[in-house]
Design a binder for these strands. Structure first.
Lengths: 234, 234
DNA sequence: GTCTATATACGGATAGAC
DNA sequence: GTCTATCCGTATATAGAC
């Protein structure tokens, strides 16, 4: 799988996404014309992620936000009841999309090495496609209310456990060497996170997501794969 | 080297540190009795890092801050002219300490494998000792003014280059396998950062810094070391 | 649906008493 | 040196016109 192929198959259509959000939040959104909601939700999410990723969600004033979206303060408050509710809408939207894509793509694969490769590529491609959201979720975790924070932490630990599970299975089957799976899963997670947290660094150096994915895979496999081919860890 | 040994030799004494800060900022600090300044700077730095690491520097109100330090608003403003100046004092203090320790310890070592090991251990031990500062510097980068941000980015890139330099030297000497040094340095950096960014995760799992250091070293060496001992990558 | 105008609270920072 | 009281700007959120 390459990034291009991923994008084609995953079909992360923004419009479909906003339509779903609208339907899930009919009660909270006062505006009733679906076409209007979909258009404005797009502006709202884009602006919130843009400004927040520059200076932080809570440093983003509603006046900044109003200007960036092109909507007045009054109009904005017909889409959410408070800044905190906006935060939760953004977080939930991303979380659910990520869960869905990960589950769909991993379900069919049984071979541990292939599962590990798919999990790593998938995560990198997903964060590439949704970089602003992942960065946002990562950076804003500490200013979240307890419930939102809990969910973000749970999602972090779930990724670790998914990876650790694949490693354990591989060790049982003898395709991976015996290694501490908890620490090893943490290492992989750190490398995956680096891709969206340090995007500016990779961009500056002209490194594309496929090249990074190949490198991380070689690195990880050289540590785990039972010796049937040093040649592969290029 | 272990963490205990590092702590003994590095002698990062808080009191000495605050005394230095006072001397470097005589012009900005209105209070003149050195003993008073040293005591209060201690409270100020501890409180600022504590609150900021819980909810962010700019979410920390001066009233929160006053309560945590036990000093009144008026008193606080005799130690710095503005919240932004406080931010810069904190950043500078840490930066200079880190630079000094890194240079001192690495200067004498020539062998690339030993240099790599020392750089990795040193960085981990340093971030362990100064975890609140590193976390602060990492998380607040985006809300810094342009000058402070520039310095933080430069320091990030300097670490990458230090590591890349060691890897290149090792490859020239034939002790490391040929690998992309820029990407590999980035990987190591990501693993070092994970230690202080995700402290809560490691603490929850009862993983100590020495164990993490051993693991990272094994991981990194298994990728780089020319084949004279698969046995070492335990 | 969207706007402008405004209520109300809280932010950083300073003046001046002790 | 440190305090309390206060200035003044800006924050979120809402009311009510169009």
């Amino acid at each position: 799988m390459t990034y291009r192929e991923f994008i084609k198959t995953a079909k992360i259509s923004k419009e479909k996404l906003y339509r779903e959000i609208y339907r899930a939040n009919r009660d909270k959104i006062q505006v009733k014309k679906e076409a209007t909601v979909v258009r404005n939700l797009g502006r709202i999410f884009d602006a919130a992620l843009k400004i927040s990723n520059e200076k932080g969600f809570q440093a983003m004033s509603m006046r900044d936000f109003s200007q960036e979206t092109g909507l007045s303060l009054g109009a904005l408050y017909t889409y959410f009841a408070s800044k905190d509710e906006l935060l939760e809408m953004i977080l939930r939207q991303g979380r659910e999309l990520v869960m869905r894509v990960l589950k769909t793509h991993l379900a069919a694969i049984r071979d541990p090495a292939a599962r590990l490769e798919t999990a790593i590529r998938l995560h990198l491609y997903l964060t590439e496609a949704l970089q602003p959201w992942f960065y946002f979720s990562f950076m804003e975790a500490k200013s979240m209310n307890p419930v939102a924070k809990e969910k973000t932490i749970a999602s972090e630990l779930a990724t670790d456990q998914l990876l650790a599970g694949i490693l354990e299975e591989g060790q049982r089957m003898g395709v991976f060497k015996p290694r501490d799976t908890t620490l090893a899963a943490g290492v992989i997670k750190a490398l995956l996170q680096d891709w969206y947290v340090k995007r500016w660094k990779f961009a500056r150096r002209g490194i594309e997501v496929d090249r990074y994915a190949d490198f991380v895979l070689a690195y990880v496999m050289s540590f785990h794969k039972a010796n049937d081919g040093e040649a592969e860890s290029k």
